[in-house]
């Protein structure tokens, strides 16, 4: 196992003191970067991992983050239009009622609610609330359930 082997670069001399044998150092810092291990294991192979519900909840937070990043453009476009004039407002309102506009609207709403709910769970975990195996499983399930309920309620109310 080359990447777990501990390498010592000190050579102990006859009088018991040790002599540095590794790359040149300055105040303890390596001056050569080539000695960095290049055979470290790659543990982010997404296709070879198992996917428990916590992992699914986690990657969904990431995906919704990217969706929101792109979605900001649509939100700004609609807001710009609606704020420009009464005619623009009517145009924006009509856009949201088209199939594509509806898809974007509800897609973004779902992404936003999920991202915020999962984000709040994330903040709780940062403060070590529920960061046990069972807590994480519950948190993941709760995140998904709360998102579906809140999005459905908001969707009905906003429509």
């Amino acid at each position: 196992m080359p990447h777990t082997q501990r390498v010592t670069l000190d050579r102990v001399t006859a009088d018991g003191s040790s002599v540095w044998q590794g790359p040149p150092r300055l105040f303890g810092l390596n001056l050569e970067t080539e000695v960095m291990k290049t055979d470290r294991p790659v543990n982010l192979n997404l296709f070879a991992m198992s996917w428990p519900i916590m992992a699914i909840a986690s990657i969904t937070h990431r995906i919704t983050g990217v969706v929101l990043f792109v979605g900001v453009a649509f939100a700004l476009y609609a807001l710009d239009l609606a704020m420009s004039s009464p005619a623009g407002f009517a145009e924006a309102a009509a856009l949201v009622r088209e199939p594509f506009g509806m898809l974007v609207f509800f897609g973004l709403l779902l992404a936003l609610v999920y991202h915020v709910v999962a984000g709040i769970k994330h903040l709780l975990l940062d403060f070590h609330h529920g960061d046990t195996l069972e807590g994480a499983r519950m948190g993941a399930i709760l995140t998904i359930v709360v998102t579906i309920v809140v999005t459905a309620v908001l969707g009905v109310m906003l429509w």
Partner: peptide, 17 residues
Amino acid sequence: VLGFFLSSDNLDHGALV
């Protein structure tokens, strides 16, 4: 913002501005 959208019935350009 959500609170505003939910609390205003008959949302129009004037209300938004």
